[in-house]
Design a binder for these strands. Structure first.
Length: 891
RNA sequence: GGGGGAUUAGCUCAGUUGGCUAGAGCACCUGCUUUGCAAGCAGGGGGUCGUCGGUUCGACUCCGACAUCCUCCA
């Protein structure tokens, strides 16, 4: 039996023998494509070739591509692991031909693609012919699409006609979007059922019918049309082949298994999980078996995505990773009864398994495991919190007859505390409750509607002014150029209208590699239009503006905001110097994990396992500043990627296949990086470099915030001004920090002394008041206007009378009222004996509100035995005392 | 980008219509007790209640902005 590694290798070897170049898998995380967060098909990294934006350096290419699918019509995250053949992360084997009308012999089309598919499957992989079916596009009159007779004829050379099935537009016609390159495809299906089953039901009837044992393994797409906005099809001059074969399914067929999880791609992980949790996987439909499959699947998605540079987070792509990871935790927590971090323990095994295919995981295995562990621990804490909250909710409802947990409560748990709904249901059932599921769904829908409404963007069609333009970025050399609009479109978001423009030649740098997009001005016939931002869409440079020139076709002068660009370049070059310095000081394990470069500062995230010490940061700063003073010229060169790597260039994540790269060299022995950004001419332009802050952003990831150039100057001078102000405030002491410490300590001591003195004064006042006790209506009464410094002191004084009054002989009941003028405002405190409250309904807050507050023009309240009041009028304090006294006498 | 929640002692958290003299447990310090496993008793220190504004006689509490963290949705 062939191992998965052999099967993968035979695929690649086979296409090498057919003149293909093998390219590495693109990262699973996608940059510069607003429509896509993750690579979800083998063709993603070649999109620009199909769209005609770019020309491929090789006509024939093959690879195995890491893909991730978590949503879409055929792949819902919640379904993965429930069945035996859907995955979040999978490998797509593919072979491509990029047609070139100028050199048709370099590529190939249907004839070769079909013949080679057949050869590989039958001669190399030995899959029996009588288990295979192929489908061919039947045509679609409504869409004016012809039947793919060409593919049909090619297949007839190899396979019995009864095994060639016709397929509908849904299954056998492939389109990237509503417009653009498209074409018919032909799929190869394999029937893996037993002979008895195959005799009973004809395989042909099960093709494309979601049968778990009759599965599609290979799709060959023939891109031959371009669909226009009006729906019509134009034949493409350059025809392409785009194929994809899921490795996991292929291996399952070759190894004769009924489940992808029984192949050697997954059995290692499952065995390790069995050993850790002490339970057995039995390949069945039970929830425990689902849990094993979920872990085996999700581990791959999480590990490879983190290795490609995407950390779990609460937005966008990072959030997808977090969700996958949490789903895995949920399953082992609930169904394998394992309450500790588990996934991270599996990372080394997976890394070793894929060491030769996707070495990036093995190279960062420690880092990935650390990130996963941290994330697991965080979620387990969240679960604990949720469990506590659930207990509260249920004990509040315990008395109710229905034992129904309201949907709003379940949603609150989910939405605010991150507590998964299925776990809520599980625990509710264990406690004899049910969850109002429809109520939950309704709340969820409300949230979705709200979010969607807030982000609704209405994008109109591109208005194309120039066909097949020469779009070019000229901003490396100049900051101003004559140009014109090539196409534009209107965007509506949150009731605001804005415009996106594509220019023929543009000096505007589009946000990329952490460097922010340029801003500036477009001059058109005396009109000035502000460019608010510049961003990339695939390889298009899109300018964001708030209006459109009155004549869109008029020539333009495009001018970049020079000072902002300059300050940004300073920070970009500083980032390279910093990166190199970190590797020199901390070690070569330092790898870039994220970067932000703008006019005001730079932010650099990198992998490192300990806090960077003061000494290390100083050393980094010193090294960068030394390189600045050396005034090293910044050399930028285009060269083949291999040559750049030989030079020691740090290959950053986010690089796709493509031969020529741009390399930024600041002293070949110091810093060599692949980079598309803009830079200063020589390091001396940075002037000075200063780290402002260092901290952690995630497990094993540190962040440095720093400034250079004018921003550094401004930062230092601001710090200096502050320091001078402090120094002056402290009367220029010889040792500033000591003086400040002494001052703080002295201040605390004085405060304490003052408090003591005030307390003593209050004690004296208290003694004095206790000698002035009168008896009113059989109650010991103190009523006095006093002089104290604060409302708190008055309250304390009044409260302290309690112990003295309680000790008076023969007078078990007491009442005290004190009034004071505090900084021009009236303050009153009233103390009532507990028994007095009970027997005569003399509640302090009531007295305060009804009898005291009106006299001082204010309000008040408190507890039954002690209440306070405040007011603006201090002229009736004596009357307050009299009023309370009269009230006591009357009761 | 849009919601929800949180921020109180070194740590984990209470604090119910605005007015309890800002609290508990753990940790810390002192003393007592005790030769034993997460010891007991008594006493004590420690707080700009995230920041800044506002409302009010009075704000930990209400309102607004900001910051940080958690969480869901897009």
């Amino acid at each position: 039996m062939m191992t998965s590694a052999e099967i993968r290798k035979k695929f690649l070897d086979f296409f090498v023998s057919k003149g293909h170049t093998i390219v590495p898998s693109a990262p699973i995380v996608v940059k510069n494509d607003p429509t896509l967060k993750f690579t979800n098909a083998g063709m993603n990294q070649f999109k620009d070739y199909f769209l005609g934006n770019k020309k491929s350096p090789h006509a024939r290419v093959a690879d195995t591509q890491k893909c991730l699918r978590v949503s879409g019509k055929h792949n819902d995250l919640e379904e993965v692991g429930v069945d035996t053949y859907h995955h979040t992360m999978f490998e797509m084997l593919g072979n491509w031909s990029f047609g070139d009308p100028a050199n048709p012999a370099a590529g190939y089309f249907k004839k070769e693609a079909i013949a080679w598919s057949w050869e590989l499957l039958t001669a190399v992989y030995d899959i029996p012919e009588d288990r295979m079916y192929v489908t061919v596009f039947e045509g679609d009159e409504a869409n004016k699409l012809p039947r793919d007779t060409e593919a049909y004829e090619e297949w007839k050379k190899w396979i019995a006609p009864k095994r060639i099935l016709l397929g509908s537009k849904k299954d056998n016609f492939w389109e990237m979007g509503d417009t653009g390159p498209c074409g018919p495809c032909t799929e190869i299906h394999v029937d893996c059922r037993s002979d008895a089953e195959r005799d009973a039901v004809a395989g042909a009837t099960l093709v494309n019918n979601d049968h778990p044992q009759v599965i599609e393994i290979w799709n060959n797409v023939f891109i031959q049309f371009n669909r226009l906005k009006d729906g019509s099809l134009q034949p493409l001059p350059a025809k392409h082949v785009d194929t994809g074969m899921g490795l996991e399914r292929l291996v399952r067929v070759m190894q004769g298994k009924h489940s992808n999880y029984d192949t050697d791609l997954f059995t290692g992980t499952i065995a390790r999980v069995e050993a850790i949790v002490g339970k057995k996987y039995s390949a069945g439909d039970g929830i425990q078996d689902v849990a094993f499959r979920v872990l085996a699947d999700h581990l791959r998605a999480i590990s490879f995505t983190i290795a490609d540079g995407q950390l779990p987070s609460n937005t966008e792509a990072g959030y997808v990773i977090r969700r996958i990871l949490r789903r895995a935790v949920r399953y082992y927590y609930s169904y394998l009864d394992y309450k500790k971090p588990l996934l991270f323990q599996l990372v080394p095994l997976l890394a070793a398994q894929f060491k030769t295919v996707f070495p990036e995981l093995d190279q960062q295995a420690d880092f990935v495991a650390k990130v996963v562990r941290e994330e697991e621990e965080a979620f387990l804490r969240t679960l604990e919190k949720g469990l506590r909250r659930m207990d509260d909710l249920m004990s509040a409802l315990r008395g109710s007859a229905a034992k129904l947990l309201p949907g709003s409560a379940a949603f609150e748990l989910y939405d605010t505390y991150g507590f998964p709904i299925d776990l809520t249901g599980l625990i509710a059932r264990e406690n004899g409750f049910t969850v109002d599921q429809p109520g939950f769904e309704a709340e969820m829908q409300k949230q979705k509607d709200r979010s969607r409404a807030a982000t609704a963007i209405d994008t109109e069609d591109w208005m194309v002014l120039v066909d097949n333009p020469l779009v070019e970025f000229v901003g490396y050399e100049m900051l101003e150029t004559n140009t014109q609009i090539v196409k534009y479109r209107k965007i509506k978001a949150k009731g605001k209208e804005s415009w996106q423009l594509v220019l023929e030649a543009t000096p505007f740098y589009a946000e990329s590699g952490g460097q922010v997009g340029d801003t500036g001005i477009l001059h058109s016939n005396g009109e000035m239009i502000s460019v608010l931002d510049t961003r990339k869409e695939h390889d298009l440079i899109v300018h964001f503006t708030d209006k459109l020139p009155s004549d869109p076709e008029a020539p333009l002068i495009a001018t970049v905001d020079r000072s902002k660009r300059k300050a940004t370049e300073v920070h970009h070059s500083a980032t390279h110097l910093l990166h190199a310095a970190l590797r020199k000081v901390l070690g070569t394990h330092v790898a870039q994990k994220g970067s932000l470069v703008n006019a005001g500062e730079l932010r650099f995230d990198f992998s490192h396992f300990a806090k960077t010490t003061e000494e290390e940061l100083s050393a980094v700063e010193a090294l960068v500043n030394e390189k600045i003073r050396e005034n090293i010229p910044v050399v930028i060169r285009q060269m083949p990627k291999d040559e750049a790597l030989k030079l020691g260039a740090m290959a950053l994540f986010g690089e796709k296949y493509g031969d020529v790269v741009r390399v930024v060299i600041i002293d070949p022995d110091y810093s060599v990086e692949l980079c598309g950004g803009t830079h200063v001419g020589a390091t001396g332009e940075l002037g000075y470099f200063k780290i402002r802050h260092e901290g952690a952003v995630a497990a094993g990831v540190r962040r440095i915030e720093a400034v250079s150039g004018p921003a550094a100057e401004a930062f230092l001078s601001e710090q200096f001004i502050q320091l001078r102000a402090v120094r002056e405030a402290l009367k220029n002491p010889p040792e500033l920090s000591r003086a400040a410490e002494t001052l703080v300590a002295e201040n605390a001591e004085l405060k304490k002394k003052l408090e003591k003195a005030e307390a003593k004064q209050l004690a004296q006042l208290r003694q004095q008041l206790l000698t002035q006790v009168q008896t009113v209506g059989g109650v010991a009464f103190i009523g006095e206007v006093v002089e104290v410094g604060s409302v708190d002191a008055l309250k304390k004084l009044c409260f302290d009378l309690k112990s003295g009054l309680a000790m008076l002989p023969n007078t078990p009941l007491f009442l005290a009222v004190l009034a004071a003028n505090i900084e021009g405002k009236a303050a009153v405190a009233l103390l009532v004996d507990e028994q007095l409250v009970a027997t005569r309904q003399l509640e302090a807050p009531a007295i305060i509100k009804q009898h005291v507050a009106p006299l001082i023009k204010g309000g008040g309240g408190g507890q039954k035995t002690l209440a306070t009041a405040g007011g603006q009028d201090t002229s009736h304090l004596a009357e307050v005392i009299a009023a309370v006294r009269n009230l006591l006498a009357a009761k």
